[in-house]
């Protein structure tokens, strides 16, 4: 579904990604793991196009998207949920959702605000509240819901559990399971290994902008050495 090859990205003058490559199959939930500064966020931004990769290929479905503007990638069905949430603070919940709206896609049940409110019940109770006056957990739900309004086939979730209370993290995990049931493929960047282990099928470990390890989540759990080398301190 998503195949990345030889991705090189810069942030200003700093060379962040060095030939990153991995693939995520249809219906899978993959997780990008790695320490702060390993290049997880830059990878996510390169995939949606907020960072222009200097070289490399990103194939989505059967299209090469690495040189496309972000809006074209989104229109093709790539959904991006930013780490900083980036809620439009002066717009209400309903208005935020409306900004994300895109036409329905073949083979996927289209998202409506009402359907999203069953996925994230908290949001339904605050439809007219401005995004700037919501808690961190509520904003995290809204940013995911907003991206889902674009009816993506593939979801890029950058650190969805960051800064959330345990209860909300559980809800988030349940939501990701539900999305997978809907037929979405998902790539998440995470630092919370427990959360990752609960939702992901596949793992990609980044270290200093390079892919250090890929494999199934089960294999990662069994492999204490990899654990220790790349994820623990």
């Amino acid at each position: 579904m998503l195949a990345v090859e030889g991705l090189n990205s810069f942030y200003g003058q700093a060379h962040i990604l060095h030939g990153v490559g991995f693939a995520v199959g249809s219906g899978e939930v993959a997780v990008l793991l790695g320490r702060n500064g390993a290049g997880k966020s830059t990878t996510m931004k390169s995939l949606i196009g907020l960072v222009r990769p200097a070289s490399g290929s990103v194939r989505f479905g059967n299209r090469e998207v690495a040189r496309m503007e972000p809006f074209r990638r989104a229109q093709l069905g790539l959904g991006y949920v930013p780490e900083e949430r980036r809620i439009f603070a002066e717009l209400t919940v309903m208005e935020n959702l409306d900004v994300g709206r895109q036409p329905a896609r073949d083979g996927l049940r289209p998202w409506t605000p009402e359907r999203l409110f069953t996925l994230f019940p908290n949001l339904g109770a605050m439809r007219r509240r401005p995004g700037g006056r919501m808690s961190g957990g509520e904003q995290q739900m809204l940013t995911i819901a907003r991206t889902l309004m674009g009816n993506p086939r593939f979801l890029l979730l950058d650190e969805p559990s960051e800064g959330l209370s345990p209860l909300i993290v559980e809800q988030m995990a349940a939501a990701i399971h539900a999305l997978r049931q809907e037929g979405l493929s998902i790539l998440l960047a995470e630092q919370n290994l427990h959360f990752a282990a609960e939702v992901a099928t596949q793992a990609v470990i980044l270290e200093s902008g390079r892919v250090a390890w890929t494999g199934s989540m089960a294999a990662l759990r069994a492999d204490a050495g990899t654990h220790g080398r790349y994820l623990a301190v």
Binding site: I48, G49, L50, E69, P70, F71, A74, Q75, Y80, P82, R86, F88, A89, E90, L91, E95, N96, D98, V99, G100, R101, Q102, R146, T147, G150
Partner: peptide
């Protein structure tokens, strides 16, 4: 109007509006 909401959203964070599929 939707156009107005897009404009207000873009005033706040135009890059994010693009990432949501809107041709800026």
């Amino acid at each position: 109007t939707r156009w107005g909401r897009l404009v207000r959203a873009a005033t706040w964070d135009r890059e994010m509006v693009g990432a949501l599929g809107v041709d800026q």
